[in-house]
Measured scan of single mutants.
Amino acid sequence: EPLWIRPDAPSRCTWQLGRPASESPHHHTAPAKSPKILPDILKKIGDTPMVRINKIGKKFGLKCELLAKCEFFNAGGSVKDRISLRMIEDAERDGTLKPGDTIIEPTSGNTGIGLALAAAVRGYRCIIVMPEKMSSEKVDVLRALGAEIVRTPTNARFDSPESHVGVAWRLKNEIPNSHILDQYRNASNPLAHYDTTADEILQQCDGKLDMLVASVGTGGTITGIARKLKEKCPGCRIIGVDPEGSILAEPEELNQTEQTTYEVEGIGYDFIPTVLDRTVVDKWFKSNDEEAFTFARMLIAQEGLLCGGSAGSTVAVAVKAAQELQEGQRCVVILPDSVRNYMTKFLSDRWMLQKGFLKEEDLTEKKPWWWHLRVQELGLSAPLTVLPTITCGHTIEILREKGFDQAPVVDEAGVILGMVTLGNMLSSLLAGKVQPSDQVGKVIYKQFKQIRLTDTLGRLSHILEMDHFALVVHEQIQYHSTGKSSQRQMVFGVVTAIDLLNFVAAQERDQK
């Protein structure tokens, strides 16, 4: 057995438009009618409502009807409940999964919650491996369901041993009777949507819809739904939504950006999952974080739909894509998950301010006199920076000697690579993860907040409520011999709460 199987392995699926269902090699399930009293909570997966979006479509000038398939009504709160249950049931049916076995899954959280929910009911041990950027709410729900959680670096490539995929496979090879159901490759993922989600949409719309818009992560949702719609409703256009920084969209030119990270969760990847059939997507749109969270908040405030950030991405694209539809036509959007997962993220004004998705003037509360002053007023001194090749031991000596707790790590040209902190280095040394002679590049981390000289002290204040420091950066445009230009970030300084307090105190003292 291989040590790991690539999540982007070539698909062996034989589905073709027009091929009889009787030739399918898979076990198919028909939607079942729910009894009045459910035998367990797993029976509350599927049969989610279709809700008309009344205000947002009109606000953006849509002539067509805009409908939302509300997947956050599933038992675990997301569309991923469907595939989690289906993968477990299919693994039980073919004898792969037996009582007492362990389920391991690399996930952005929602599939993990679905699997942990099913594992709690069915009696399996469950280990979820997820990147650090995923919300604390997801972690809390997983723990409450009895799952064990392993976190991995957000910026690790999918084929790196440190990625959530790599760590999951390492655990599988170490733990007896453990299984990775593997949402990236498992046919049960798109089949769950082909058999149930798509049929529900067709039934709820009486077979009449002209466009379907869905955000894409593993691709199982859009693949399964689109294949069924292509068979039953061939005139329906399928629109895929991919965040900026991901590479799922086609044509490839759409993916060209210097951005590699994004805040919206559960969609987009740096590889093409095996289950994603991009041939059934008629057109791709890219979405960005700001519009995703703005539209998610709009869905909550104006439509009462308590959905997550990827739902915002989907609707932001839908109001663009559906401009081509006329009166009497219908566009369906998939709202994948609930706001429950993001209470401390985009639902929080403070978080939105820190990330730059909300401006101070958007909030009406009274601010102190210094709130709208610029960061450049602080008069920061030149920063202490270190090269990635310097040793951890030497870096600790320098920081202690100069009285700093942290320093930016830059390359020879001064471009920011990340940050090192005294606390992080000492804990890594004590844990045996690094040696004093190791290069400081081994303990770089990139989960820090950046701020510009033109940003306000109010925004800085919000950042420092949650973080010990902020890195002050400025952009530099560099022209190359080819005539092309590129933008790079340079370090201007490091600012802490002490710097802000000293500035405010000094100004008030001078005024007296």
Rank of each mutant, 00 (worst) to 15 (best):
V333H: 00
T456G: 13
T391N: 15
L426W: 06
D349Y: 07
M466Y: 13
W284N: 00
F404G: 01
T274A: 02
E265S: 05
L422E: 13
E508D: 15
Y269W: 00
N424P: 09
V375D: 06
E290R: 03
N288L: 14
D467F: 15
L471R: 02
V319H: 04
A505S: 14
L399V: 09
T260G: 11
F448E: 07
T344R: 07
C392H: 05
G268M: 00
K446V: 15
G414A: 02
R452T: 03
F404T: 07
G393I: 14
Q507M: 15
F295V: 12
I247P: 07
M419G: 09
L429Y: 10
I398M: 14
L358N: 10
Q326T: 10
A506P: 10
I300Y: 05
K359C: 14
A431Q: 07
V315C: 11
V491M: 13
V315T: 11
F346I: 13
E397H: 12
G266V: 00
K433Y: 08
E265F: 00
P383C: 07
Q376N: 11
H474I: 04
E303M: 07
F357H: 08
I451Y: 08
S310A: 06
I267P: 08
L460K: 05
Q450D: 15
G423Y: 02
W369C: 07
R452Q: 02
I463V: 15
K484M: 13
G308M: 02
A321V: 15
A413G: 14
W371M: 09
E377D: 10
S381E: 13
V440C: 15
S381K: 12
A382K: 11
T389E: 13
Q476L: 14
T456R: 10
L422A: 11
V386F: 12
D510K: 10
V317A: 03
A301K: 04
E360S: 15
P436F: 13
N502A: 13
L380E: 08
D362S: 04
E360K: 15
A311M: 05
E327W: 02
E253F: 08
G493L: 15
Q406Y: 07
V315N: 07
L254R: 10
I390T: 11
L429A: 02
V275T: 03
E258L: 11
Y342V: 01
R374W: 09
G432I: 15
G441M: 10
T257C: 11
